[in-house]
Design a protein around this nucleic acid. Structure first.
Length: 489
DNA sequence: TGAAATGTTGGGGCG
DNA sequence: ACGCCCCAACATTTC
Protein backbone atom coordinates (compact mmCIF):
# COMPACT_ATOMS: atom_id res chain seq x y z
CA UNK A 1 0.00 0.00 0.00
CA UNK A 2 1.28 3.42 -0.83
CA UNK A 3 1.00 6.12 1.73
CA UNK A 4 -1.98 8.40 1.22
CA UNK A 5 -0.97 11.81 0.00
CA UNK A 6 -2.81 13.55 2.80
CA UNK A 7 -0.82 11.72 5.43
CA UNK A 8 2.57 12.46 3.87
CA UNK A 9 4.53 15.56 4.59
CA UNK A 10 6.86 15.12 1.65
CA UNK A 11 6.95 18.09 -0.70
CA UNK A 12 5.54 17.91 -4.21
CA UNK A 13 7.01 19.37 -7.39
CA UNK A 14 5.11 21.65 -9.67
CA UNK A 15 6.90 21.25 -12.99
CA UNK A 16 6.07 24.34 -15.06
CA UNK A 17 6.05 23.69 -18.78
CA UNK A 18 4.00 25.98 -20.99
CA UNK A 19 1.56 26.91 -18.28
CA UNK A 20 3.34 29.96 -16.92
CA UNK A 21 0.55 31.24 -14.72
CA UNK A 22 -0.56 30.99 -11.12
CA UNK A 23 -4.30 31.50 -11.59
CA UNK A 24 -6.55 28.85 -13.06
CA UNK A 25 -3.69 26.37 -13.32
CA UNK A 26 -4.93 22.79 -12.87
CA UNK A 27 -1.57 21.26 -11.98
CA UNK A 28 -0.78 24.01 -9.49
CA UNK A 29 -4.18 23.84 -7.86
CA UNK A 30 -3.99 20.09 -7.50
CA UNK A 31 -0.49 20.36 -6.10
CA UNK A 32 -1.65 22.95 -3.58
CA UNK A 33 -4.63 20.83 -2.59
CA UNK A 34 -2.28 18.19 -1.23
CA UNK A 35 -1.58 20.63 1.58
CA UNK A 36 2.10 19.80 1.26
CA UNK A 37 4.97 22.13 0.36
CA UNK A 38 5.01 22.91 -3.37
CA UNK A 39 8.35 23.27 -5.15
CA UNK A 40 7.87 25.24 -8.37
CA UNK A 41 10.43 24.23 -10.99
CA UNK A 42 11.15 25.32 -14.54
CA UNK A 43 13.65 23.34 -16.58
CA UNK A 44 15.17 24.80 -19.71
CA UNK A 45 15.51 21.68 -21.83
CA UNK A 46 15.80 22.05 -25.57
CA UNK A 47 15.03 18.40 -26.18
CA UNK A 48 11.99 18.23 -23.94
CA UNK A 49 9.70 20.54 -25.84
CA UNK A 50 9.58 18.71 -29.13
CA UNK A 51 11.68 21.14 -31.13
CA UNK A 52 14.45 23.59 -30.31
CA UNK A 53 12.88 26.95 -29.60
CA UNK A 54 13.48 29.97 -31.78
CA UNK A 55 15.00 33.28 -30.75
CA UNK A 56 11.74 35.20 -30.39
CA UNK A 57 10.28 32.40 -28.24
CA UNK A 58 13.28 32.54 -25.95
CA UNK A 59 12.88 36.30 -25.65
CA UNK A 60 9.31 35.73 -24.48
CA UNK A 61 10.25 32.88 -22.19
CA UNK A 62 12.81 35.08 -20.46
CA UNK A 63 10.22 37.73 -19.57
CA UNK A 64 7.46 35.30 -18.76
CA UNK A 65 9.65 33.36 -16.36
CA UNK A 66 10.66 36.56 -14.61
CA UNK A 67 6.99 37.48 -14.20
CA UNK A 68 6.18 34.01 -12.95
CA UNK A 69 9.09 34.12 -10.55
CA UNK A 70 7.88 37.44 -9.17
CA UNK A 71 4.38 36.06 -8.70
CA UNK A 72 5.69 33.06 -6.84
CA UNK A 73 7.86 35.28 -4.66
CA UNK A 74 4.79 37.38 -3.79
CA UNK A 75 3.24 34.16 -2.48
CA UNK A 76 6.22 33.38 -0.32
CA UNK A 77 7.83 30.88 -2.68
CA UNK A 78 10.76 30.65 -5.03
CA UNK A 79 10.83 29.47 -8.63
CA UNK A 80 13.64 26.94 -9.06
CA UNK A 81 15.36 27.25 -12.42
CA UNK A 82 17.34 24.41 -13.89
CA UNK A 83 18.89 23.88 -17.27
CA UNK A 84 19.55 20.51 -18.82
CA UNK A 85 17.89 17.18 -19.32
CA UNK A 86 14.42 17.29 -17.77
CA UNK A 87 14.53 13.88 -16.15
CA UNK A 88 18.00 14.42 -14.70
CA UNK A 89 17.01 17.79 -13.25
CA UNK A 90 13.79 16.44 -11.80
CA UNK A 91 15.76 13.63 -10.18
CA UNK A 92 18.16 16.16 -8.78
CA UNK A 93 15.32 18.11 -7.18
CA UNK A 94 13.75 14.90 -5.91
CA UNK A 95 17.03 13.74 -4.39
CA UNK A 96 17.57 17.05 -2.65
CA UNK A 97 14.04 17.42 -1.27
CA UNK A 98 12.47 13.99 -0.94
CA UNK A 99 9.57 15.05 -3.16
CA UNK A 100 7.43 12.10 -4.21
CA UNK A 101 4.99 13.61 -6.72
CA UNK A 102 5.39 15.73 -9.84
CA UNK A 103 2.38 17.80 -10.90
CA UNK A 104 2.42 19.11 -14.44
CA UNK A 105 0.24 20.40 -17.25
CA UNK A 106 0.97 18.21 -20.20
CA UNK A 107 2.56 19.20 -23.46
CA UNK A 108 0.64 17.62 -26.31
CA UNK A 109 3.13 17.73 -29.15
CA UNK A 110 3.81 14.09 -30.02
CA UNK A 111 7.56 14.17 -29.33
CA UNK A 112 7.12 16.03 -26.06
CA UNK A 113 4.29 13.69 -25.08
CA UNK A 114 6.32 10.54 -25.59
CA UNK A 115 9.35 12.05 -23.87
CA UNK A 116 7.16 12.96 -20.90
CA UNK A 117 5.81 9.42 -20.84
CA UNK A 118 9.38 8.09 -20.63
CA UNK A 119 10.15 10.49 -17.81
CA UNK A 120 7.00 9.52 -15.93
CA UNK A 121 7.85 5.85 -16.40
CA UNK A 122 11.41 6.40 -15.23
CA UNK A 123 10.35 8.28 -12.11
CA UNK A 124 7.65 5.76 -11.36
CA UNK A 125 10.24 3.01 -10.94
CA UNK A 126 11.73 5.16 -8.18
CA UNK A 127 8.39 5.59 -6.50
CA UNK A 128 7.70 9.10 -7.77
CA UNK A 129 4.29 9.78 -9.29
CA UNK A 130 3.73 12.11 -12.23
CA UNK A 131 0.31 13.66 -12.40
CA UNK A 132 -0.56 15.28 -15.70
CA UNK A 133 -3.33 17.78 -16.44
CA UNK A 134 -4.53 19.80 -19.37
CA UNK A 135 -3.99 23.50 -18.83
CA UNK A 136 -3.30 24.67 -22.37
CA UNK A 137 -6.01 23.35 -24.69
CA UNK A 138 -9.80 23.25 -24.59
CA UNK A 139 -9.68 19.52 -25.09
CA UNK A 140 -6.98 16.91 -24.98
CA UNK A 141 -5.82 16.06 -28.51
CA UNK A 142 -7.26 12.77 -29.59
CA UNK A 143 -10.43 13.22 -27.56
CA UNK A 144 -12.56 14.73 -30.33
CA UNK A 145 -13.31 12.04 -32.88
CA UNK A 146 -15.74 11.63 -35.74
CA UNK A 147 -18.55 9.12 -35.97
CA UNK A 148 -16.18 6.41 -37.15
CA UNK A 149 -13.83 6.97 -34.26
CA UNK A 150 -11.22 8.65 -36.44
CA UNK A 151 -9.75 12.14 -36.45
CA UNK A 152 -11.56 14.97 -38.17
CA UNK A 153 -9.70 16.20 -41.23
CA UNK A 154 -12.04 19.08 -41.99
CA UNK A 155 -12.25 22.08 -39.72
CA UNK A 156 -15.97 22.87 -39.70
CA UNK A 157 -17.23 19.50 -38.44
CA UNK A 158 -14.31 19.42 -36.00
CA UNK A 159 -15.37 22.75 -34.54
CA UNK A 160 -18.96 21.61 -34.29
CA UNK A 161 -17.92 18.48 -32.44
CA UNK A 162 -15.54 20.46 -30.24
CA UNK A 163 -18.26 22.86 -29.20
CA UNK A 164 -20.74 20.08 -28.60
CA UNK A 165 -18.43 17.80 -26.67
CA UNK A 166 -16.98 20.12 -24.09
CA UNK A 167 -17.87 22.86 -21.70
CA UNK A 168 -15.74 25.28 -19.77
CA UNK A 169 -14.14 23.81 -16.69
CA UNK A 170 -14.84 25.85 -13.58
CA UNK A 171 -12.41 28.70 -13.04
CA UNK A 172 -9.91 27.66 -10.38
CA UNK A 173 -9.10 30.02 -7.58
CA UNK A 174 -5.64 31.45 -7.51
CA UNK A 175 -3.23 29.72 -5.15
CA UNK A 176 -2.38 32.27 -2.45
CA UNK A 177 0.42 30.64 -0.52
CA UNK A 178 3.50 29.00 -1.94
CA UNK A 179 5.68 29.22 1.13
CA UNK A 180 7.23 26.33 2.97
CA UNK A 181 9.21 24.64 0.20
CA UNK A 182 12.69 23.45 1.13
CA UNK A 183 15.59 25.57 -0.07
CA UNK A 184 17.56 24.25 -3.00
CA UNK A 185 19.82 25.30 -5.83
CA UNK A 186 18.50 27.39 -8.66
CA UNK A 187 20.10 28.90 -11.71
CA UNK A 188 20.01 32.66 -12.11
CA UNK A 189 17.91 33.52 -15.15
CA UNK A 190 20.38 36.25 -16.09
CA UNK A 191 22.91 33.51 -16.74
CA UNK A 192 20.65 31.78 -19.25
CA UNK A 193 21.17 34.54 -21.78
CA UNK A 194 17.71 34.20 -23.27
CA UNK A 195 17.54 37.88 -24.10
CA UNK A 196 19.37 38.56 -27.37
CA UNK A 197 22.71 40.35 -27.27
CA UNK A 198 24.96 41.59 -30.04
CA UNK A 199 22.73 42.48 -31.64
CA UNK A 200 19.66 42.94 -29.50
CA UNK A 201 17.00 42.74 -32.19
CA UNK A 202 14.13 42.96 -29.71
CA UNK A 203 13.89 46.74 -29.39
CA UNK A 204 10.53 46.80 -31.18
CA UNK A 205 8.95 43.95 -29.21
CA UNK A 206 5.97 45.75 -27.67
CA UNK A 207 4.70 42.98 -25.42
CA UNK A 208 4.05 42.34 -21.77
CA UNK A 209 4.80 38.65 -21.28
CA UNK A 210 3.37 37.00 -18.22
CA UNK A 211 0.06 36.34 -16.60
CA UNK A 212 -0.83 39.98 -15.91
CA UNK A 213 -0.05 40.91 -19.49
CA UNK A 214 -2.21 38.05 -20.75
CA UNK A 215 -5.17 39.11 -18.62
CA UNK A 216 -4.74 42.72 -19.71
CA UNK A 217 -4.65 41.66 -23.37
CA UNK A 218 -7.89 39.71 -22.97
CA UNK A 219 -9.61 42.59 -21.19
CA UNK A 220 -8.48 45.03 -23.86
CA UNK A 221 -9.70 42.77 -26.64
CA UNK A 222 -13.12 42.06 -25.14
CA UNK A 223 -13.59 45.80 -24.60
CA UNK A 224 -12.21 46.97 -27.95
CA UNK A 225 -11.97 44.70 -30.96
CA UNK A 226 -14.26 41.80 -30.23
CA UNK A 227 -17.34 43.89 -31.07
CA UNK A 228 -16.26 44.07 -34.74
CA UNK A 229 -13.94 41.07 -34.80
CA UNK A 230 -15.42 39.39 -37.88
CA UNK A 231 -14.40 42.12 -40.26
CA UNK A 232 -11.96 44.09 -38.14
CA UNK A 233 -9.62 41.15 -37.75
CA UNK A 234 -8.84 41.30 -41.46
CA UNK A 235 -7.62 44.89 -41.34
CA UNK A 236 -3.98 44.82 -40.28
CA UNK A 237 -3.91 48.51 -39.32
CA UNK A 238 -6.63 47.97 -36.70
CA UNK A 239 -6.08 46.55 -33.20
CA UNK A 240 -9.06 44.26 -33.72
CA UNK A 241 -7.32 40.94 -33.17
CA UNK A 242 -6.83 39.51 -29.71
CA UNK A 243 -3.02 39.38 -29.79
CA UNK A 244 -3.40 36.56 -27.29
CA UNK A 245 -1.41 34.01 -29.32
CA UNK A 246 1.92 34.23 -27.45
CA UNK A 247 0.14 34.34 -24.10
CA UNK A 248 -1.83 31.26 -25.06
CA UNK A 249 1.26 29.49 -26.33
CA UNK A 250 3.05 29.92 -23.02
CA UNK A 251 -0.04 29.14 -21.03
CA UNK A 252 -0.18 32.52 -19.36
CA UNK A 253 -3.92 32.25 -19.85
CA UNK A 254 -6.02 29.27 -20.78
CA UNK A 255 -8.05 29.16 -23.99
CA UNK A 256 -11.13 28.47 -21.91
CA UNK A 257 -10.76 31.79 -20.13
CA UNK A 258 -10.54 33.61 -23.45
CA UNK A 259 -13.51 31.76 -24.91
CA UNK A 260 -15.57 32.19 -21.76
CA UNK A 261 -14.85 35.92 -21.65
CA UNK A 262 -15.92 36.36 -25.28
CA UNK A 263 -19.12 34.35 -24.85
CA UNK A 264 -19.95 36.17 -21.62
CA UNK A 265 -19.59 39.53 -23.37
CA UNK A 266 -22.02 38.29 -26.01
CA UNK A 267 -24.46 36.95 -23.40
CA UNK A 268 -24.39 40.34 -21.67
CA UNK A 269 -25.21 42.06 -24.94
CA UNK A 270 -21.88 43.92 -25.00
CA UNK A 271 -20.87 42.40 -28.34
CA UNK A 272 -22.85 40.63 -31.08
CA UNK A 273 -22.94 36.89 -30.66
CA UNK A 274 -21.73 36.35 -34.22
CA UNK A 275 -18.54 38.28 -33.43
CA UNK A 276 -17.84 36.20 -30.33
CA UNK A 277 -18.48 33.04 -32.36
CA UNK A 278 -15.86 34.14 -34.90
CA UNK A 279 -13.33 34.45 -32.11
CA UNK A 280 -14.26 31.05 -30.70
CA UNK A 281 -13.71 29.63 -34.18
CA UNK A 282 -10.18 31.05 -34.21
CA UNK A 283 -9.44 29.41 -30.89
CA UNK A 284 -10.97 26.36 -32.54
CA UNK A 285 -8.32 26.50 -35.28
CA UNK A 286 -5.67 26.38 -32.59
CA UNK A 287 -7.34 23.27 -31.19
CA UNK A 288 -7.69 21.76 -34.67
CA UNK A 289 -3.97 22.27 -35.28
CA UNK A 290 -3.05 20.52 -32.04
CA UNK A 291 -5.43 17.66 -32.82
CA UNK A 292 -4.05 17.23 -36.33
CA UNK A 293 -0.48 17.21 -35.04
CA UNK A 294 -1.47 14.57 -32.50
CA UNK A 295 -3.01 12.28 -35.10
CA UNK A 296 -0.48 13.01 -37.86
CA UNK A 297 2.84 13.65 -36.12
CA UNK A 298 4.86 13.53 -39.35
CA UNK A 299 3.20 16.72 -40.59
CA UNK A 300 5.94 18.78 -38.94
CA UNK A 301 8.29 17.68 -41.72
CA UNK A 302 6.15 15.97 -44.36
CA UNK A 303 3.21 17.12 -46.39
CA UNK A 304 -0.13 15.85 -45.12
CA UNK A 305 -0.93 15.15 -48.77
CA UNK A 306 2.19 13.16 -49.67
CA UNK A 307 2.08 14.04 -53.37
CA UNK A 308 3.21 17.53 -52.41
CA UNK A 309 6.53 16.20 -51.20
CA UNK A 310 7.36 15.38 -54.82
CA UNK A 311 6.92 19.01 -55.81
CA UNK A 312 10.07 20.56 -57.32
CA UNK A 313 10.39 23.57 -55.03
CA UNK A 314 12.83 26.18 -56.23
CA UNK A 315 16.10 26.56 -54.37
CA UNK A 316 15.92 30.34 -54.56
CA UNK A 317 18.17 31.71 -51.82
CA UNK A 318 18.05 35.25 -53.14
CA UNK A 319 14.27 35.17 -53.23
CA UNK A 320 14.10 33.73 -49.74
CA UNK A 321 16.41 36.39 -48.39
CA UNK A 322 14.43 39.18 -50.06
CA UNK A 323 11.32 37.72 -48.45
CA UNK A 324 12.80 37.49 -44.96
CA UNK A 325 14.12 41.05 -45.14
CA UNK A 326 10.96 42.61 -46.49
CA UNK A 327 12.55 43.54 -49.80
CA UNK A 328 10.32 41.81 -52.34
CA UNK A 329 9.02 45.00 -53.89
CA UNK A 330 5.44 44.12 -52.94
CA UNK A 331 4.55 46.57 -50.16
CA UNK A 332 2.02 44.47 -48.27
CA UNK A 333 4.44 41.52 -48.23
CA UNK A 334 7.36 43.65 -47.14
CA UNK A 335 5.29 45.42 -44.49
CA UNK A 336 4.34 42.07 -42.97
CA UNK A 337 7.84 40.66 -42.98
CA UNK A 338 9.19 43.82 -41.35
CA UNK A 339 6.46 43.83 -38.73
CA UNK A 340 7.45 40.25 -37.95
CA UNK A 341 11.14 41.06 -37.62
CA UNK A 342 10.56 44.21 -35.62
CA UNK A 343 7.84 43.08 -33.22
CA UNK A 344 8.01 39.27 -33.23
CA UNK A 345 4.49 39.07 -34.54
CA UNK A 346 2.56 39.51 -37.77
CA UNK A 347 -1.11 40.19 -38.32
CA UNK A 348 -2.91 37.03 -39.40
CA UNK A 349 -4.25 38.38 -42.69
CA UNK A 350 -0.74 39.38 -43.67
CA UNK A 351 0.66 35.99 -42.63
CA UNK A 352 -1.55 34.43 -45.28
CA UNK A 353 -0.40 36.94 -47.87
CA UNK A 354 3.32 36.54 -47.21
CA UNK A 355 3.02 32.76 -47.02
CA UNK A 356 1.16 32.63 -50.30
CA UNK A 357 3.85 34.83 -51.82
CA UNK A 358 6.71 32.62 -50.66
CA UNK A 359 5.07 29.39 -51.70
CA UNK A 360 3.21 30.33 -54.85
CA UNK A 361 4.98 33.36 -56.26
CA UNK A 362 8.50 32.23 -55.39
CA UNK A 363 7.78 28.46 -55.36
CA UNK A 364 9.91 28.08 -52.24
CA UNK A 365 9.30 25.08 -49.99
CA UNK A 366 6.79 25.87 -47.23
CA UNK A 367 9.18 24.34 -44.70
CA UNK A 368 11.63 27.21 -45.19
CA UNK A 369 8.90 29.71 -44.42
CA UNK A 370 7.74 27.66 -41.48
CA UNK A 371 11.29 27.60 -40.08
CA UNK A 372 11.58 31.37 -40.44
CA UNK A 373 8.31 31.93 -38.62
CA UNK A 374 9.37 29.45 -35.97
CA UNK A 375 12.48 31.48 -35.25
CA UNK A 376 10.97 34.96 -35.44
CA UNK A 377 7.44 34.66 -34.01
CA UNK A 378 6.87 35.19 -30.32
CA UNK A 379 3.78 32.99 -30.70
CA UNK A 380 5.60 30.19 -32.54
CA UNK A 381 3.59 27.04 -31.86
CA UNK A 382 4.44 23.77 -33.51
CA UNK A 383 0.92 22.66 -34.34
CA UNK A 384 -0.39 26.03 -35.46
CA UNK A 385 2.70 26.97 -37.43
CA UNK A 386 2.94 23.71 -39.35
CA UNK A 387 -0.78 23.45 -39.91
CA UNK A 388 -1.11 26.98 -41.21
CA UNK A 389 1.85 26.72 -43.56
CA UNK A 390 0.52 23.48 -44.97
CA UNK A 391 -2.86 25.12 -45.26
CA UNK A 392 -1.46 27.84 -47.49
CA UNK A 393 0.70 25.39 -49.44
CA UNK A 394 -2.36 23.30 -50.21
CA UNK A 395 -0.63 20.24 -48.81
CA UNK A 396 -2.46 20.14 -45.50
CA UNK A 397 -5.73 18.80 -44.14
CA UNK A 398 -8.69 20.94 -45.17
CA UNK A 399 -6.14 23.10 -46.94
CA UNK A 400 -6.51 25.95 -49.32
CA UNK A 401 -6.67 24.51 -52.85
CA UNK A 402 -3.58 24.86 -55.02
CA UNK A 403 -5.19 27.43 -57.27
CA UNK A 404 -5.97 29.82 -54.46
CA UNK A 405 -3.18 32.32 -54.98
CA UNK A 406 -3.26 35.65 -53.21
CA UNK A 407 -2.66 38.73 -55.33
CA UNK A 408 -0.46 40.94 -53.12
CA UNK A 409 -1.70 44.07 -54.86
CA UNK A 410 -5.43 43.48 -54.55
CA UNK A 411 -5.01 42.07 -51.03
CA UNK A 412 -3.29 45.31 -50.08
CA UNK A 413 -6.00 47.39 -51.71
CA UNK A 414 -8.75 45.39 -50.07
CA UNK A 415 -7.44 45.14 -46.53
CA UNK A 416 -5.22 48.21 -46.27
CA UNK A 417 -7.12 50.63 -48.52
CA UNK A 418 -5.77 53.76 -46.88
CA UNK A 419 -2.30 52.30 -46.68
CA UNK A 420 -1.91 52.88 -42.96
CA UNK A 421 -0.26 49.53 -42.40
CA UNK A 422 2.06 49.71 -45.40
CA UNK A 423 3.10 53.29 -44.65
CA UNK A 424 3.99 52.35 -41.10
CA UNK A 425 6.27 49.48 -42.06
CA UNK A 426 7.51 50.61 -45.47
CA UNK A 427 8.13 54.30 -44.82
CA UNK A 428 10.28 54.78 -47.90
CA UNK A 429 7.14 54.70 -50.06
CA UNK A 430 4.85 56.44 -47.55
CA UNK A 431 4.47 59.54 -49.72
CA UNK A 432 3.06 57.64 -52.67
CA UNK A 433 -0.63 58.36 -53.25
CA UNK A 434 -3.01 55.56 -52.17
CA UNK A 435 -3.60 54.77 -55.80
CA UNK A 436 -0.03 53.53 -56.34
CA UNK A 437 0.93 52.51 -52.82
CA UNK A 438 0.38 48.78 -53.26
CA UNK A 439 2.04 48.73 -56.70
CA UNK A 440 4.71 51.43 -56.64
CA UNK A 441 6.14 50.48 -60.02
CA UNK A 442 2.89 51.61 -61.65
CA UNK A 443 3.32 55.18 -60.44
CA UNK A 444 4.11 57.69 -63.19
CA UNK A 445 7.67 59.04 -63.05
CA UNK A 446 6.37 62.56 -62.37
CA UNK A 447 4.90 61.23 -59.14
CA UNK A 448 7.91 59.24 -57.98
CA UNK A 449 10.26 62.07 -58.93
CA UNK A 450 8.04 64.53 -57.11
CA UNK A 451 8.44 62.63 -53.83
CA UNK A 452 12.09 61.80 -54.40
CA UNK A 453 11.49 58.05 -54.68
CA UNK A 454 13.88 56.08 -56.85
CA UNK A 455 12.50 52.59 -57.39
CA UNK A 456 15.26 50.02 -57.50
CA UNK A 457 17.30 52.19 -55.16
CA UNK A 458 15.18 53.41 -52.23
CA UNK A 459 12.74 50.55 -52.54
CA UNK A 460 13.07 47.44 -54.72
CA UNK A 461 11.26 46.78 -57.92
CA UNK A 462 9.14 43.61 -57.66
CA UNK A 463 11.40 40.54 -57.56
CA UNK A 464 8.83 38.61 -59.59
CA UNK A 465 5.97 39.62 -61.82
CA UNK A 466 2.90 38.40 -59.99
CA UNK A 467 0.87 37.59 -63.09
CA UNK A 468 3.70 35.48 -64.52
CA UNK A 469 4.41 33.90 -61.15
CA UNK A 470 0.76 33.01 -60.78
CA UNK A 471 0.68 31.27 -64.18
CA UNK A 472 3.89 29.44 -63.35
CA UNK A 473 2.52 28.25 -60.01
CA UNK A 474 -0.80 27.17 -61.47
CA UNK A 475 0.93 25.12 -64.15
CA UNK A 476 3.34 23.49 -61.73
CA UNK A 477 0.92 22.86 -58.88
CA UNK A 478 -1.69 21.53 -61.25
CA UNK A 479 0.67 18.64 -62.01
CA UNK A 480 1.06 17.62 -58.40
CA UNK A 481 -2.63 18.03 -57.68
CA UNK A 482 -3.95 16.55 -60.88
CA UNK A 483 -5.46 13.53 -59.17
CA UNK A 484 -6.85 15.38 -56.19
CA UNK A 485 -10.52 16.16 -55.96
CA UNK A 486 -11.39 19.15 -53.86
CA UNK A 487 -14.74 19.22 -52.11
CA UNK A 488 -16.91 22.28 -52.34
CA UNK A 489 -16.56 24.56 -49.37
C1' DT B 1 -9.87 32.90 -44.97
C1' DG B 2 -9.01 33.99 -54.04
C1' DA B 3 -8.39 35.72 -58.42
C1' DA B 4 -9.23 35.97 -63.07
C1' DA B 5 -11.95 34.85 -66.93
C1' DT B 6 -16.29 34.58 -68.67
C1' DG B 7 -21.27 35.35 -68.67
C1' DT B 8 -25.42 38.21 -67.67
C1' DT B 9 -28.05 42.22 -66.86
C1' DG B 10 -29.62 46.75 -67.00
C1' DG B 11 -29.16 51.78 -67.39
C1' DG B 12 -27.97 55.51 -70.26
C1' DG B 13 -26.18 57.79 -74.43
C1' DC B 14 -27.05 58.21 -79.00
C1' DG B 15 -28.41 57.85 -83.83
C1' DA C 1 -40.01 55.52 -79.50
C1' DC C 2 -36.80 52.21 -80.65
C1' DG C 3 -32.67 49.52 -81.28
C1' DC C 4 -27.95 49.44 -80.68
C1' DC C 5 -23.80 49.90 -78.24
C1' DC C 6 -21.01 50.60 -74.24
C1' DC C 7 -19.90 49.49 -69.88
C1' DA C 8 -20.37 49.07 -65.00
C1' DA C 9 -22.08 45.92 -61.76
C1' DC C 10 -22.97 41.65 -60.47
C1' DA C 11 -22.99 36.47 -61.01
C1' DT C 12 -20.89 32.20 -62.45
C1' DT C 13 -17.23 29.38 -63.78
C1' DT C 14 -12.59 28.00 -63.93
C1' DC C 15 -7.96 27.57 -62.33
Amino acid sequence: MTTKASTSDKPVILWFRRDLRLADNPALNHAAETGRPVIPVYILDDAGDGRTRGGASLWWLDKSLRALSDGIAERGGRLILRRGDSEAELRSVIDQTGADTVFMNRLFEPDAWSRDAEIAHGLKTDGVDCKGYNGTLMTRPGSVLNGSGGPYKVFTPFLKALRASTEAPPLMTSVRDLSGAPRLDSDDIDDWGLHPRRPDWSGGFDWTPGEAGATAALTRFVGHGLDHYGKGRDIPSLPATSRLSPHLHWGEISPWRAVTAALAAAADGKVPGAEADKFVAEIGWREFSAHLLHHFPTMTAKAFRPEYDAFPWLDDDAGFEAWTRGQTGYPIVDAGMRQLWTTGWMHNRVRMIVASFLIKDLLIDWRRGEAWFWDTLVDADLGSNVQNWQWVAGSGADASPYFRIFNPITQGEKFDPEGKYVRKWVPEIARLPDKYLHAPWTAPVEITRGIGLRLGHDYPKPIVDHAQARDRALAALKQVSSRIEYPHD
